[in-house]
Amino acid sequence: MTSAPGDPAPWWHTGALAWLVARAYTRSRPAAALAWAAALATIAPYVLRRAVYESADRDGMVIFCRYRPVLDVVVATVLGLAFFGLGFSAFVAEFDHRPLVLVVLGGILGVVLAGALLMSVGLSPTDAVGPDTPDGRRWAIMALAQRPGTRCSALLLTRRLIASLPAGDVVVAVAADESLAGAYARFGFTRTPGRRVHRVLD
């Protein structure tokens, strides 16, 4: 089997899923509001890859895909260039309002960067593999997120996705905190430095 079962989240859920990620990775609703744009920028490439899955109750989600960091960078770069092109076009077109356009574009960039700082753990696939990671066909878990005040559906979804893979494949992730690292351990993952975890399927 070469892909995870079930249907990935539809593209029109992207905004709501970005909010779920922002809420899960920050400590308050105001912080989540700041982080939403960064969450959107983070998950949008994976929506294009059809690698974003949400639980049936829509309280949990996970990015689950083949570990291909070069492809991730390419897709993110293409999206970034597309948005940059739109912004530059607006800048060129609005000759009389260039200061306003610069302020708006700068504000958007500032919000995205601030949000990225608030959600800096567990979202980058390149951090998930280290010298202690076993060889094999690798799958990455990222942005494992559970809506505050709800329980378990993201982990259960992830366990179902992992169970669909053949023996010998390797699943990798970076735990966002010690609690999640413990949850991964209960699912049979091995921990290595930097809260990296991996599991060789048998």
Score class of each variant (00 low, 15 high):
Leu113Cys: 05
Leu113Gln: 11
Arg27Asp: 08
Gly194Pro: 05
Pro193Ala: 02
Phe187Ala: 15
Tyr184Ile: 06
Gly182Glu: 12
Arg199Leu: 02
Val73Tyr: 04
Val62Asn: 00
His13Trp: 07
Gly87Leu: 05
Arg137Ala: 14
Leu117Trp: 11
Met1Val: 12
Ala33Pro: 09
Glu54Phe: 05
Ser164Pro: 10
Phe91Met: 08
Arg66Gly: 04
His198Ile: 00
Leu17Met: 08
Val129Gln: 00
Arg29Leu: 14
Asp127Met: 11
Tyr46Leu: 07
Val111Pro: 00
Gly149Leu: 08
His13Lys: 10
Gly149Trp: 09
Asp96Glu: 14
Pro166Gly: 09
Thr150Ala: 04
Asp127Val: 08
Arg195Tyr: 05
Trp11Val: 15
Gly15Cys: 12
Val171Phe: 06
Asp57Trp: 12
Trp11Gln: 15
Asp169Trp: 07
Phe187Met: 15
Ala44Arg: 01
Glu94Phe: 07
Ala18Met: 10
Ser124Val: 09
Val73Asn: 06
Glu54Leu: 11
Val101His: 08
Gly136Asp: 03
Gln146Ser: 13
Leu102Ser: 13
Leu117Asp: 14
Leu165Asp: 00
Val47Lys: 02
Ser28Cys: 08
Pro134Lys: 11
His97Arg: 14
Ser89Ile: 11
Leu71Gln: 13
Asp177Gln: 15
Ala128Asn: 13
Arg147Val: 01
Thr158Asn: 09
Gly85Cys: 15
Glu94Lys: 04
Trp11Ser: 13
Leu144Met: 08
Ala31Lys: 12
Ser120Glu: 13
Asp169Ser: 11
Met119His: 04
Tyr67Arg: 10
Ser28Lys: 10
Tyr46Phe: 13
Pro134Leu: 13
Trp19Gly: 09
Gly87Gln: 02
Phe84Gly: 14
Tyr25Leu: 13
Val200Asp: 06
Trp36Asn: 05
Gly107Tyr: 06
Ala145Phe: 02
Arg68Trp: 03
His198Cys: 01
Leu117Arg: 14
Ala41Lys: 08
Ala41Tyr: 11
Thr158Ile: 08
Arg27Met: 10
Pro131Lys: 05
Leu118Phe: 11
Glu178Ile: 12
Thr158Arg: 05
